[in-house]
């Protein structure tokens, strides 16, 4: 019984991280239509920035949130305003925009990754913060992991509230459904799309900060997280943000069960789920 509970709780913890990452990618693809394969690089930036702030300046990792999130948001916003906006203007059709923006983000992946390799080097970094055990339902967990789960839930729910309750959130949802119609209804589409891209980058950086609290981080850690984000986005349903949030926890739970049996097979299991999904239900959990 304790084992089952342990597996479930650690699944929820990983799931919280997956949910954040996937929500970010979902915003970038679902609304801004950018297939951002450099998503994981923003996670890496968040993680390594937090590491630097903690080990060099002694800044509490939880406070690093206030640094990483806004910086990544600004970076994403500017990127969309300059690079993707220009590609959008020069693409004759949405299909061409999708492939060109994908190619550009592939280029960005390598630019960011190699700049990070210059700055931080290829070493694997880690620090200990809140690493004392906490007893929960008879199983002990690291306090840092519980904080991670709590924060992931908090950010996820806040973000959902932002989308469903505020005016900007409404504009984002409208643009996700039909950006042309939204623009005709007076939504400032350029700024909304850039906002979505920036928010996606910000969520990735926050996830990166949380990841750095629990796992070792390094400059080339991004790609596996991008792959997981893509699988979760398909699992939740392309373009559905609540779907991505839910899908993150589902995949986290599955991953936790597989890790308990054979850790080396986790990513393989994710991919099997991905393949099955494409065969049986490509529209995902919440897809239309």
């Amino acid at each position: 019984m304790e084992t089952i509970l342990g597996v479930v709780i650690s699944g929820l913890m990983i799931g919280g991280l997956y949910a954040l990452i996937a929500m970010g990618l979902s915003l970038q693809y679902g609304v801004a239509r950018v297939l951002n394969v450099s998503h994981g690089e923003f996670i890496m930036l968040g993680a390594l920035t937090t590491w630097t702030l903690y080990t060099v300046f002694g800044l509490n990792p939880l406070l690093a949130l206030a640094v990483c999130g806004p910086i990544a948001f600004a970076l994403g916003y500017v990127l969309h305003r300059t690079v993707y906006r220009r590609i959008w203007a020069s693409s004759p059709s949405p299909g061409v925009f999708e492939s060109n923006s994908l190619l550009a983000s592939f280029g960005l992946l390598f630019i960011i990754q190699n700049l990070a390799l210059f700055g931080w080097g290829p070493e694997i970094r880690g620090y200990t913060y809140l690493a004392f055990p906490v007893e929960l339902a008879g199983v002990s967990f690291g306090a840092n992991r519980l904080v991670t789960l709590g924060l992931a839930l908090l950010v996820g729910v806040t973000f959902y509230a932002f989308l469903s309750r505020t005016r900007i959130g409404k504009a984002i949802r409208a643009s996700a459904q039909d950006s042309t119609a939204a623009a005709l209804m007076g939504v400032n589409i350029n700024s909304v799309l850039a906002l979505c891209f920036g928010l996606g980058a910000g969520l990735a950086a926050i996830a990166g900060m949380l990841i750095s609290m629990c796992y070792p981080v390094h400059a080339v850690m991004g790609i596996p997280y991008t792959i997981i984000a893509m699988i979760v986005v398909v699992l939740g349903g392309l373009g559905s943000i609540p779907g991505s949030f839910l899908g993150g926890f589902v995949l986290g739970l599955i991953g936790s069960v597989v890790t308990y049996i054979e850790p080396a097979l986790t990513l393989i299991a994710y991919y099997l789920i991905f393949a099955l999904l494409l065969l049986v239900r490509p529209s995902g959990i919440m897809g239309r």
Binding site: V83, R86, I87, N100, L103, A104, F106, G107, L108, L109, F110, I111, Q113, N114, L115, F118
Partner: peptide, 13 residues
């Protein structure tokens, strides 16, 4: 690798 990335982005733009 940095130059490759830059060239890719600049070419597309």
């Amino acid at each position: 690798m940095l130059v490759m990335g830059l060239v890719l982005v600049v070419t597309i733009l």
